[in-house]
């Protein structure tokens, strides 16, 4: 097994870091660059930014935040959300991103995977798959934060994006996202066994046990975590600050966390993996 990567995922709406449940019901947590800086200094292996509303409105508001982040953060930064064309990808890379993640654009036009991976290198192109479990046990891919049904089977789509030149897959279980109930191990294992490119798994981290389980039983190569890290940051820093008055702040003021998520730090997650004999960078 290779070194498991621990990747804080920051969902961004306008100028703010937000967090929801099942990718919905977004609450403002603060300035993304403050969280990014803290995660960088505390041992994050990479960072993922997702502009969660860009797909809905067809806008790209991330460039300033990317530039501010990349200036003093020297680990890989993946950026996604609302990137539709090769030109959009180029603009985000020019702003300082190292990789891009595509979902809606790839579903609507799979050839963009081929085109972009040839132009920017496979390793720059991450395909984001939002999976929702069906009654028959299969999984279907969704877009726009789990809102839009595509009818595409997740397993065959994962194999297809690899063939088209994707460098990595970011797999989100929409069912588990924000719940703290643990990752979807069945889904992750099924996809990891079917592909030869690295798999980043997201959605459901609520306790330390969940991350060792997904690395071993799930065969994930990298683990993206949002809520558990964000709440840890907020508690440690007594943090209440944001970039504007846009959005729902009641959650931040209430000092609550979601009951199923026990906040933990990047450091704790890595110590835990090492204690379970799982390799990771410390």
């Amino acid at each position: 097994m290779n070194n498991i990567r621990i990747i804080p995922r920051l969902d961004i709406k306008g100028p703010n870091l937000v967090k929801g449940i099942h990718l919905e019901g977004l609450r403002v947590l603060g300035k993304p660059e403050d969280f990014a800086r803290f995660y960088y200094e505390n041992g994050a292996d990479e960072l993922i930014y997702v502009d969660v509303v860009a797909s809905l409105f067809g806008r790209n508001s991330l460039h300033d935040i990317i530039a501010r982040t990349a200036k003093d953060i020297f680990i890989p930064l993946t950026v996604g959300g609302g990137l539709r064309t090769v030109e959009d990808i180029k603009a985000v890379l020019r702003a300082g991103a190292d990789k891009v993640s595509l979902n809606t654009a790839a579903i609507h036009n799979p050839q963009i995977i081929k085109e972009a991976s040839q132009k920017f290198g496979s390793s720059t192109i991450v395909i984001s798959i939002e999976a929702i479990r069906q009654k028959d046990g299969s999984y279907l891919a969704f877009t726009d934060n789990g809102r839009e049904h595509t009818g595409i089977d997740v397993l065959s789509w994962a194999k297809r994006v690899e063939e088209l030149g994707a460098g990595e897959i970011l797999l989100t279980s929409v069912d588990r996202e924000g719940t703290g109930l643990g990752f979807d191990v069945d889904l992750t294992k099924m996809i990891s066994e079917a592909i030869s490119i690295p798999l980043i798994v997201h959605g459901g981290a609520g306790r330390l046990e969940h991350i060792s389980e997904i690395a071993t039983a799930g065969q994930a190569d990298a683990i993206a975590i949002a809520g558990a890290f964000h709440y840890d940051f907020i508690l440690k820093n007594k943090y209440v600050e944001s970039n504007s008055n846009e959005g729902n702040f009641e959650f931040l003021k209430s000092e609550k966390t979601f009951s199923k998520i026990t906040p933990f730090s990047i450091e704790k997650s890595k110590e835990y993996l090492i204690s379970k004999k799982i390799k990771t960078r410390i």
Partner: peptide, 11 residues
Amino acid sequence: NKIKVPQVGWN
């Protein structure tokens, strides 16, 4: 054993 290619990550 399956080897994931590309290698992506810290080594």
